[in-house]
Design a protein around this nucleic acid. Structure first.
Lengths: 230, 230
DNA sequence: CCAGAAGCAATTGCATGCACTTTTTGCCTT
DNA sequence: AAGGCAAAAAGTGCATGCAATTGCTTCTGG
């Protein structure tokens, strides 16, 4: 009996698998180097191996998993060196977005950025990490959109998602919340002035600092990064 | 009869399909918007639909094809606007690579770049477009590697391959060869001096000019870009 | 006791088949 | 004659089954 799936949320089964497995990787639930057994995954999500295989193929194309022919798939192992290169790239990409935003944002985009940024200040005062994280994500998304460049937007979002596992707990560090907001403030101010050079520099510095804060979660050069299982 | 494939070149069948279909898209043999029928492709390459489906999934993740649920796959349609955004991104990415290269290339990398660059000068004098194209590709690859940043390298190569169909015939334009070499020369000189700012600017300008040269092959804002079938 | 080869279990890779969705075509109604 | 509805055809999406490759275990010879 080709049984009907209990809950069909949206999109195809493969898309759901990509999101589901991708999420588990991005959130650190699946650890780098962990073996991704097709049969287990199929059983885990109550589908056949076919969509699992397709999902693994796509995740492989995205760089989240590694696939050796006839030897199965594992969660992509990120070396300390490669992690550093991703953070550096992220800094450059954010700098580009901020620079373009300073030059190209419409007045309504600028207004929206300012308003959201001010709203997030309340989260800082309340010390609401969870809520601030939402505003933080939204803030950066506005920068990416404000660049008015679809391809840079795509590259940036892709890189950001690959870095997600390593940015996760940064807001737990004491004082990081307020510091983050101040860095955002520098970026916003520069964009409002239309100062693209300053905006780019501020954005680059912001990511660089996040990078350093996240380095805590990396262990050493050889071993894959390890995170706790939820 | 699960017949044996006649020629097994390397890698899995799916990898071959990705390369085969990807090549046909990148070289313009398959035109944007063209329908990619799973059954036809399976018959064309003498495999079943399963590897075709996986390949299409991966190509979709790479952005070379678009896939609508239950409605089949088509070669990704690139609007004039999106094409412009890719060229602009490419200029920024090359600028980053050149900037990093100026700062980080080892002396042997610098020497290799210089030697290859001088060698390519002969191709210009001979007017050998084909051979120059090889040196040109190699030149840019050296820049990407010289940045010593694996992730930027990856993003740059990915973007470059997506732009490939639109850069194809640029060297046919008269005088383009010599001009390209002079632009390369600016980049090399800056890198040799270790002048990262100048190297970045020169690289960005180089791509921008290529972009303008390639714009010839774009038609208008609405319609998908069309290229001749080989 | 160890090295190497052969057999075995486990898992991947691909083909095929069936169900569901979309699209087209032909007929009926207005 | 035009519009709409319905049924069929086409094509996608997923499940299942079988062949092939890999890695491990075990057995044999040195």
């Amino acid at each position: 009996m080709p049984g009907k799936r209990s809950l069909i949320r949206s999109g195809t089964t493969v898309d759901q698998m990509v999101r589901a497995i991708g999420d588990r990787i991005v959130t650190g639930y699946l650890r780098p180097g962990e073996k991704l057994d097709e049969i287990s995954l199929a059983a885990r999500f109550d589908v056949s191996r076919t969509p699992v295989r397709e999902a693994l193929g796509q995740l492989s194309a995205m760089g989240l998993v590694e696939r050796r022919p006839n030897r199965g798939a594992i969660v992509a192992v990120v070396t300390q060196e490669h992690l550093a290169s991703m953070f550096e790239s992220m800094a450059e990409l954010e700098a580009i977005c901020a620079r373009f935003s300073a030059e190209r944002m419409t007045s309504s985009e600028r207004r929206g950025l300012e308003i959201e940024h001010q709203a997030s200040a309340r989260m800082v005062q309340a010390g609401a990490e969870e809520d601030y994280e939402y505003f933080n994500t939204e803030f950066h998304s506005r920068l990416y959109r404000g660049a008015h460049n679809a391809h840079i937007h795509e590259l940036t979002v892709m890189t950001r998602s690959r870095l997600a596992p390593f940015r996760r707990a940064q807001f737990m560090l004491p004082g990081r919340l307020a510091k983050s907001w101040q860095e955002h403030d520098l970026i916003v101010t520069a964009i409002m002035r239309g100062d693209s050079v300053a905006a780019g520099k501020a954005a680059r510095d912001h990511v660089s600092i996040v990078s350093e804060a996240s380095a805590v979660f990396a262990t050493d050069d050889r071993k894959p990064i390890r995170r706790d299982v939820a």
